[in-house]
Structures are given as C-alpha cells and as structure tokens.
Design a protein around this nucleic acid. Structure first.
Length: 202
DNA sequence: TATTGGATCGCC
DNA sequence: GCGATCCAATAG
C-alpha cells in the first residue's frame, strides 16, 4: 500500500459553459487551465476572472452588436475568444452562454502548476509571483495567441478541468475599464498571491 | 481613408 | 506616471 493518489482532472463538459455568464464566471475560480503546445504541457489554476456580457455592459466588446472581432462572444459557449490589445498583448476569454447570447469570461490570473520553467522562459523573468498575475501575462506564459481564437475547449490544445479544489471566491469591480465600473463582475481566489492586484484580493 | 483609444505591462 | 506598438471601431 502507498498513499499516492493520482489527481483526477476532469475536463469541464460543454454544458458547464452554456450557462449565464455570471453563473459561469465565479465557478471558474479554482479550475485548472491546461495548455498543450507541441506535446509540452503547461498548467495553471485560475485565480482571477472577469465577466463581460452584451448590450447591458458598456465595457464589453459585444456592447454595440456583432463585429468580426467579437462574433465568437455571440456564439455557443465552450470556445476560447482571444484578442490582441495595446499593440503587444493577448487576452484569453472563455465564451459562455447559449448561441445568440453574448458572454465571455476574461482569464486575468492563474497560479502556476506545471511547466513553470517554460513560463519563466516565455515571460523572461525569474520572479514567479510576476509570472501569470495579469491577463497579458497569462497568455504569454501559456503560449496563447490569435491562433487559439475559436479553439474548442473540448479539444486537446487548450481546455479547462476540475481537480476538486475549492477556493473562497472574492468579488469586486472590474479592473482597467472606464465605463461599467459599477458592476462587480470580477471574481478571484481570496488572499491568493497570484491575483493581479494583490491589494484588491480580499 | 483618418483618427482614436484600448478588458496591458514594465520601466521611469 | 508614461511609452510601446497594433489594430478594431467609428467617424467623415
């Protein structure tokens, strides 16, 4: 006998995503983000997200209706929406809700779990606290770029999983937006040191 | 076709 | 606090 117990990572099923965005978003805190790139595995645990919706949400890309960039937000939940911003960064979102209802959840921070050396190399830093504590940093560390826009989260190159971990979820206003600030649609792992703004993680 | 400013980050 | 650096969205 030994005490070794393999950690089961159950890929989140399609119906998980096809619920209202504000139900999905807090449920993503504590889930595992798996990235498989050329056979190399990089894994993080989601510790911070933000919800974005549709015409009721001026901060959302979907606020003014369908455009070539945001069209995935209006589609069926369960795919990745990746966009390019500030001329140098990517942001990764999980598309939520049913077909015809816009919604997505921005992955703002993860806690490094596997493939940390690769994360350090891509991020060009040795400070692990600074590796994945921001939406642009997450994409750099996990090698997420526009090629993954529209990727099916039931596939192998990128997906989310549940390993049974449960974290206390804090709630706050969203970060880095001008309008829609009153909406408290940011969800994070309370007290976790990999949350992007450490002073606002309680 | 031109302009504006952004769901960011790292350095000053 | 500010510049980097691209491009989507909007206005003309």
């Amino acid at each position: 006998m030994n005490n070794f117990k393999p950690i089961a990572r159950l890929k989140l099923p399609r119906p998980f995503y096809q619920r209202p965005t504000l139900e999905v978003a807090p449920d993503l805190v504590g889930k595992i983000l798996v990235r498989k790139n050329r056979g190399v595995l990089t894994v993080g645990r989601i510790v911070e997200v933000e919800a974005y919706r549709n015409s009721d949400d001026p901060a959302s890309h979907a606020y003014r209706g369908v455009t070539p960039r945001n069209r995935l937000m209006f589609g069926e939940g369960g795919v990745l929406y990746v966009y390019f911003i500030y001329g140098m960064y990517f942001c990764a979102n999980v598309v939520t809700d049913k077909n015809g209802v816009a919604g997505a959840v921005l992955i703002r921070a993860v806690e490094p779990v596997e493939g940390i050396e690769g994360m350090r190399r891509r991020r060009k830093t040795r400070s692990d606290d600074n590796l994945t504590n921001g939406p642009g940093k997450v994409c750099t560390a996990l090698a997420i770029d526009r090629r993954l826009n529209g990727a099916d989260l039931q596939g192998e190159s990128i997906y989310l999983a549940d390993d049974g971990e449960r974290m206390r979820v804090g709630i706050s206003e969203r970060i880095g937006i001008r309008s829609g600030k009153e909406k408290r649609w940011r969800f994070f792992a309370a007290g976790n040191k990999f949350v992007s703004r450490i002073r606002f993680n309680r």
